[in-house]
Design a protein around this nucleic acid. Structure first.
Lengths: 149, 149
DNA sequence: TTTCTTGCAAAGTCTTTGCAAGGTG
DNA sequence: CACCTTGCAAAGACTTTGCAAGAAA
């Protein structure tokens, strides 16, 4: 089943959870910001602009839930703050993150190419690879430009 | 210059820092636990067994310093806790981490093989890759065994 | 109606900071 | 001696929890 807004209710119900306006609003915001990677507090601020009465505890409780249901991915960068991104349909296996050490910007790239490496690891170490996370640190084009000034 | 205990003083001095028993003790512990990835508090406990009077604030202040000097790498796993590992001489570019989703064990593997991918990224996106971090999630041999029981 | 959720406030964890006393170069 | 560091305690940042009132199925 595709992980879209429309399926939120069904997904929740099959596991005994309920669809609340808060949960809908939070997913809504995240889908609208699709390509962003938002911190909990940023999500809280955004949702609050649509639903001023929501409490931050609800956000903290909803995010892991949406993650468990497969709607979100939790990301931990080097600053130690938890971020979330909307997970593109079942493919948690095919995009990598690039983090600019100049401005901190986080972007994505849609390649994978780790199959060979995974096979090699499995053969060498016996470790059964199920998933991976690959991050590149370096300079985005903007920051490379600034260096030449 | 190799990043060994012996060079700590020199390294520190060239940047205006001083060699204190506390700093020596902390690096000592980390070197002895070489292949482990320790949380701040674990490091504090270990150092305290040798130097009971040390304060945890000192540990929190020393770890980033040792990282800055190139002796340590800071690692952030999915539980959000900061860990440190001794950095093997200047090679921050050639080992990956494997995290078992069964028992949580963190181990290392000494392959790289990302050069092609990095070149491709640079060509495609203009992002200048300086470093990377690759983690594999899956099951270690022990945990695979448990599943068959 | 039953069970799950919410918002609030309090409590927790991990980490950082201010400061006076003490150590290093 | 000048400057860097330490240990302590207090303050911070982020996150989790207990609970009574309220909402969803």
């Amino acid at each position: 089943m595709p992980k879209t807004q429309a399926n939120l209710k069904a997904q929740l119900n099959t596991e005994g959870y309920k669809l609340t306006p808060q949960r809908k609003a939070i997913l809504d915001i995240l889908i609208k910001q699709r390509c962003k990677h938002l911190k909990c507090d940023e999500i809280y601020q955004l949702v609050r602009s649509k639903m001023p009465s929501i409490g931050i505890a609800t956000v903290y409780r909803t995010l892991p839930l949406l993650e468990k249901m497969g709607f979100l991915n939790r990301i931990l960068l080097d600053d130690g703050l938890v971020r979330y991104e909307v997970s593109t349909q079942g493919e948690n296996h095919s995009h990598h993150h690039m983090i600019c050490t100049g401005c901190g910007e986080l972007s994505e790239i849609e390649v994978d190419m780790l199959d060979d490496l995974e096979k090699q690891i499995q053969k060498t170490t016996g470790f059964l690879v199920q998933n991976h996370s690959l991050r590149f640190y370096g300079l985005c084009q903007k920051c490379q430009g600034k260096l030449n000034t």
